[in-house]
């Protein structure tokens, strides 16, 4: 603080266009995660790493009935990746921000809560795109061939799916203590990745497990995307879409209600 202050306090400021705040907020979200390499490692590198060790040698193998092993692995590890981005990039981040008091400080500014939270969705979309594209490139390089149009459609579906899964991240962020966010995320990520088929084809599991799996959004997203790549799976597009969108809307409404209910207590 120096003698310049008197002059600077009196100088006229500048008018800033309203959408700039959202753009800067989204840019800040991206920047902070890029600068935290542990996050990038966990969320983006892990699915690529899993694909490499599991799929590298078998990617070109055809699946009886259509499609390749590589196509299957690209789909299931994309779902694993986008879900982990939502859980850590939204859930863990918001839990930390609540503990540190970031949200309290933002709440006394005129930035709408919706803009603050939507900036986190922008981050999820960017990170999800990176995962899906990198896995796709890795899949193509290892022999999982698909027509470009099919590939793009599948990528679009997975990206839309990542948006539908992201409210689960907001639920974690609003409900979980920062110290337990990592553990809770793992408890959500593991079963939901299992039902997407990360560890094994869900149809090889006992009927009881399969019936439970069919209640999860990741199962239906996975089946839908697998069938787009030509794999012989029992997809029912309308039913599957309804499950994924239904989960997305239900978890978004729950997150909104919890935000409203606790906004004055946990955030202040």
């Amino acid at each position: 603080m120096n003698t310049l202050t008197l002059a600077t306090m009196a100088r006229p400021g500048v008018d800033r266009p309203p959408l700039r705040s959202f753009a800067l907020q989204a840019a800040a979200e991206l920047r902070r995660h890029l600068r935290a390499p542990d996050f990038a490692m966990a969320a983006i590198a892990l699915p690529l790493f899993f694909y490499t060790i599991i799929g590298m040698s078998r990617a070109a193998e055809p699946v009886p009935g259509g499609g390749t092993v590589g196509g299957y692995l690209v789909v299931v590890f994309s779902i694993f990746g986008v879900l982990s981005v939502s859980l850590s990039g939204i859930g863990h981040t918001i839990a930390d921000e609540r503990a540190r008091g970031d949200l309290r400080l933002v709440r006394v500014t005129p930035l709408p809560a919706a803009a603050y939270l939507a900036a986190k969705l922008v981050f999820v979309l960017v990170a999800s795109t990176a995962i899906i594209v990198l896995l796709g490139i890795e899949g193509a390089a290892t022999g999982a061939r698909l027509p470009l149009a099919t590939w793009l459609a599948t990528a679009g579906l997975l990206l839309a799916g990542s948006l539908m899964l992201s409210p689960i991240g907001f639920l974690v962020g609003f409900l979980v203590r920062p110290g337990s966010a990592g553990a809770v995320n793992l408890l959500i990520l593991m079963p939901l990745s299992l039902t997407a088929g990360v560890f094994m084809d869900i149809h090889e599991l006992p009927a009881a497990v399969r019936q439970i799996a069919e209640l999860t959004p990741t199962y239906h997203l996975s089946i839908l995307a697998q069938s787009m790549t030509g794999l012989p799976v029992p997809a029912q597009p309308i039913v599957d879409v309804a499950w994924v969108v239904g989960w997305g809307i239900a978890s978004a409404v729950a997150a909104l209600l919890i935000y409203r209910r606790f906004v004055g207590r946990q955030f202040a």
């Binding site: 603080m1 120096n2 310049l4 202050t5 600077t8 306090m9 100088r11 400021g13 500048v14 008018d15 800033r16 309203p18 700039r20 705040s21 800067l24 907020q25 800040a28 933002v106 500014t109 005129p110 930035l111």
Partner: peptide
């Protein structure tokens, strides 16, 4: 810069930084 963008009218970033030392 980010917090300034939240407000419809704000001080210049350099001015704020100088004033706050």
């Amino acid at each position: 810069e980010l917090f300034s963008s939240y407000y419809p009218h704000s001080r210049r970033t350099a001015d704020v930084i100088a004033a706050a030392g």
